[in-house]
Simulated scan of single mutants.
Amino acid sequence: MSGPATGAPRGETAPARARPSVLATHAVLACLGGFFFLGSFSYPWTTVEDGTVGPGALPRVAGLALLLIGLAMLRREARTGTVLEGDGHVEEETERTDAEHRTVRRKLAVVSAALVATAVLIPFLGMLPTLAALTLFLTISVERLRWPVALTASLGVLVVCYLLFGVLLRVPLPLGVFDPALWGAV
């Protein structure tokens, strides 16, 4: 009997070959990194007032890292390819039932819709409450965790994001309706 999508007998490793879908994925990652890297030059590397790290540092470093990693992965895939079995390649599994496939597709649709809703809600509710709500929604509806566990995870995301971005990195986060300037004008 042949292994899935390889033609190699079960137990044998299929020969490595470059896959167009993997090449395209790595190229998109490299381009995305390049866009962030180039876009970061519209922001200063340091702040003028005190010489600390400015708003251009994070997108410049992250964009350059993504660009270089994407190019390295693209080069590796083009030169040596990857083994089809066991490298994370999605293969058709005959053991799954149609109901399991429907469940996976439903979860993917729910997560995609939740991410779009999160992007829409951030300007209104602010970053931290929206991320906490997203975590709560996904842990309950997709992961089917109990309420106490889901609430703990949601609160954990809220606290970690606040400490990381608000306190440690001092990144100004969108506050939405919780912005004191909004309520001061009312």
Rank of each mutant, 00 (worst) to 15 (best):
E143H: 08
L136F: 15
L158M: 04
L138D: 07
L68D: 02
V90I: 06
V149Q: 11
E85Q: 10
A99Q: 14
T94H: 13
T152K: 15
P44E: 10
G81C: 08
K107E: 07
P55V: 04
A62H: 10
T80H: 15
I69M: 03
G88H: 04
G51W: 01
L58Y: 10
S141Q: 13
V90S: 09
V149E: 10
I69S: 08
V83H: 13
T130V: 08
E143L: 06
L155S: 05
P148E: 06
T103E: 08
F137Y: 09
L84E: 10
G51D: 00
A62N: 12
L84M: 11
P59W: 02
M127E: 02
L131F: 15
R144P: 15
A62Q: 12
R96A: 04
M127V: 07
D50Q: 06
A132H: 10
K107S: 11
L134W: 04
L145K: 12
L58T: 00
V120Q: 00
T80R: 03
W45P: 02
G63Q: 11
V159I: 15
C161V: 08
H101D: 13
R60W: 03
L108F: 03
S154F: 12
V111N: 05
L131V: 03
T118P: 02
P129R: 09
G126D: 06
G70V: 08
L158D: 00
T82A: 05
T82I: 10
C161K: 07
S141Y: 11
A72V: 05
A114F: 08
G126W: 12
